[in-house]
Amino acid sequence: MSTASLNRAFALLLWRDLLLAFRRRTELLNPLLFFVLVTTLFPLGIGADPALLRAVAPGIIWVAALLAAMLSLDSVFRSDFEDGSLEQFLISAQPLSVLVLAKVIAHWLITGLPLLIVAPLLGLLLHMSGASIAALLLTLLLGTPVLSLIGAIGVALTVGLRRGGVILSLLVLPLYIPVLIFAADAVATSGAGLPITAHLSLLAALLVLSVSLSPLATAAALKISLS
């Protein structure tokens, strides 16, 4: 297969998933609402002292983002598995890992990117400073694609299971820990007025690593799950 047909298949699949999401656009809001809801639970649980909230805000927002990303994972492959589209991808003339990457990118655009839109609002609710909110957006921009990429491996492993949801969280959440640590610490550090270049470089490194490795692992996992 030529590079041109590979590029065309990649673009076609990306377009298809975005179109499908658009046709079911009411469902787009769900992970976003979940993200907001979980975050607003914390002040109710631990008290509304602004200093306390400011101190724990990075951790809260990032844990909520982690959970929102995890909950939305199911939709990456579920419907394609159920109607047989996934089988068609498996036997398509293009390498499966490239198709997987297109699907994960579409998934991130649909579920990951919108988190960035509401994150500043949540930052204000938790009394974060302007610098912290800027840092939060940067870390979300670099970190949430990693969550989608790693999560795709877990979904691919559990897609054939009737009750894969709980197992999925067991598989995926431990792998999310490095992102959580670097990202939440970056936001906290910027709140203290210190530079966060090191954090951002590490997150970028994680992103590069997962972009290059995760589609391969996901493709291998899908082949096993569908055999």
Binding site: R16, L19, L20, R23, R24, E82, D83, G84, S85, E87, Q88
Partner: peptide, 8 residues
């Protein structure tokens, strides 16, 4: 599973 996408 015939691989037809319902929303397309």
């Amino acid at each position: 599973r015939d691989g037809v996408k319902q929303d397309l």
